Computed example of a mutant assay.
Amino acid sequence: MTADKDIERTDHTLRVLYEVARERSRQDAKWGEQNHPDGTDESRWDKEAAVRARALCQHLAARGELTWDAILSEEIAEAFAESDPAKLRAELIQVAAVAVAWVEAIDRRQP
């Protein structure tokens, strides 16, 4: 793993993360602190959904047709299939990172 001091982010990434932090503040202001059960599982269905989502991403990537929705769907499916809190946390960080990357890609398309 790369040390934090070696990780550099662009000003654009920081702006997107600031927007995410502002949205979290709005959510807390509206709903208060939320403490729901995870609702994730290592059920057969969840595991199969994660395998299918991963296979779809690999298939699309091999054809040069990979899309953001397929990537994010894979990450979400992997999170939904995870019950171990540490592994679930890691998967959710990946979900958040892909969502931020997608926002950055949308912003790059703007004139």
Rank of each mutant, 00 (worst) to 15 (best):
M1F: 10
D4M: 09
T10D: 03
T10L: 05
T10M: 02
H12F: 09
H12E: 14
T13I: 08
R15E: 13
Y18S: 13
E19A: 06
E19H: 07
V20D: 00
A21M: 08
R22V: 14
R22I: 10
R22Q: 10
R24N: 10
R26V: 06
D28P: 05
D28E: 15
A29N: 15
A29T: 15
W31Y: 15
W31I: 11
W31M: 14
G32A: 10
E33A: 12
N35M: 12
N35P: 00
P37C: 05
P37I: 05
T40R: 05
D41R: 14
D46I: 02
K47Q: 13
K47I: 13
A49C: 09
A49K: 08
V51T: 09
V51W: 04
R54D: 12
R54L: 07
R54Y: 00
A55P: 03
A55I: 00
C57K: 06
Q58L: 10
Q58A: 11
H59F: 11
L60D: 00
A61W: 07
G64D: 02
G64F: 04
G64V: 03
W68T: 03
D69V: 08
A70F: 02
L72R: 03
E74W: 03
E78K: 12
E78H: 10
E78A: 07
A79Y: 00
A79W: 03
F80H: 14
E82M: 12
E82D: 01
S83E: 15
S83L: 10
D84P: 00
A86E: 15
A86L: 11
K87N: 08
K87M: 08
L88H: 06
A90Q: 08
E91Q: 14
A96M: 11
A96T: 12
A96W: 04
A96K: 09
W102K: 06
E104I: 06
A105C: 04
D107P: 00
D107H: 13
R109D: 14
R109T: 14
Q110I: 13
Q110K: 13
P111Q: 10
